[in-house]
Amino acid sequence: MSTSNVERVANATPVLVRNQELAAANYLAFEADRVLAVNLMSAPGAGKTSVLEATLRALGGKRRAGVIEGDLETTRDADRILALGIPAHQINTGTVCHLDARMVSRALEQFPVGGFDVLFIENVGNLVCPAEFDLGERLRVMVFSVTEGADKPKKYPLMFHRSHAVLLNKIDLLPYCGVSLEELTRNVREVNPDAAIFPVSCRTGEGIAEWVSWLDAQIPGE
């Protein structure tokens, strides 16, 4: 007789099951509040906050918007949003390279979103991990700057694949960076045939109206 028994417990549990459960609870809370939750993701410096500022300006007084900002450190992004007169709440993740559903759930305890038509959750700048952690959002929107190169959708397919919309930002810089918008668009399309793709420039304002019009159509009616 052996002194200890080994028991095999087979379960096929998703590794991120806890995150998925909390994300589902957040999702239901957003739906009950009739607020469109948007998870905004990108690499650092692709222009998430600039896109957000341009989007908030374009939505103007028409829609009530709120913002949850995720960064490792500082309240700089929340400060930029507050400067526009838009309610914002900053999450500092410390060393964690993505937001998760628990962080958002905790933020919601301090930052009620029931009065908003749309809630933007700006994720930590990172082209990899945020794509794995659902937050309870209805839309995943990715900001990609053309200066990052046309090959990135192929190199980092998951975030592109999981996004409902991909904004190709900084198109005003296309003449200077040797990137083909056609090739970039084709590469996005190949890893995500369903994504809505919007070439935009926060600097010139080009394409912002088309993106905001698409977004506005996703906001639930009264």
Binding site: N11, K154, H161, V191, N192
Partner: peptide, 30 residues
Amino acid sequence: DLCLLCPDCGGRVEIAAGRELEIRYVDLEC
């Protein structure tokens, strides 16, 4: 070189496997 457009018909290609991230089993000492 992921491409989710079908080379034959141009339609959408689905991911049938490769997105798994799950625990299969745990061996416990009792």
